[in-house]
Amino acid sequence: MTTPDSQEVSHLLAAWRAGDLTALERLTPLVYGELHQLAHRYMRRENDGHTLQTSALVNEAFVRLIEQPQINWQNRAHFFGVAAQMMRHILLDYARTRMRAKRGGGALQVSLDETALVTGVRAAELIALDDALNELATHDVRKSRLVELRFFGGLSNEEVAEVLGMSLRSVEREWRKAKAWLLHALSKDEPHEA
């Protein structure tokens, strides 16, 4: 894999911010490559029982890709946006692959949900959550991005506030409402839930 040059990454981020959607396409493999490598390295180093903080991972990927002493907050915010989207994509594909494997039947005893249990969300729930989040986006893009950053990107409320340019107070409010809405949407299919 070629090492992306940090100027290129900054440039792509700026282009994307300016509305160039193809910039995101070009940015994605660079960010993915970095995240993938970092995740590999973390998993090697971590002992049993430790979990990797996604935001730490994203942070490190950012620092490594940009390599700038002066961090441009705009860039950083956008970078987190890219990473969270990507993480969502990766996790969903991962969950779907696992679901497929499960349906694959007898021979495939892939242990599915044990892994997902760590996060409190099972593979199946993750897919449903994604659907609900897509629906939420049709009503309220800001809430959907907030959830993406928090849940898939692993960012704290403070970081989300920074990335979305909101006050901390608004982030907390919006987060609570988004959660209520999502949980409500997810419960609709379950007959025993009120």
Binding site: M43, L57, M87, I90, T115, F151, F152, G154, R176, K179
Partner: peptide, 20 residues
């Protein structure tokens, strides 16, 4: 919803990333 999706999909993210 108190604890709902409060924990990020962190552990899973690392595994998904590293495994694929």
């Amino acid at each position: 919803a108190a604890s709902f999706i409060e924990t990020p999909a962190a552990a899973l993210a690392a595994e998904a990333l590293a495994q694929q």
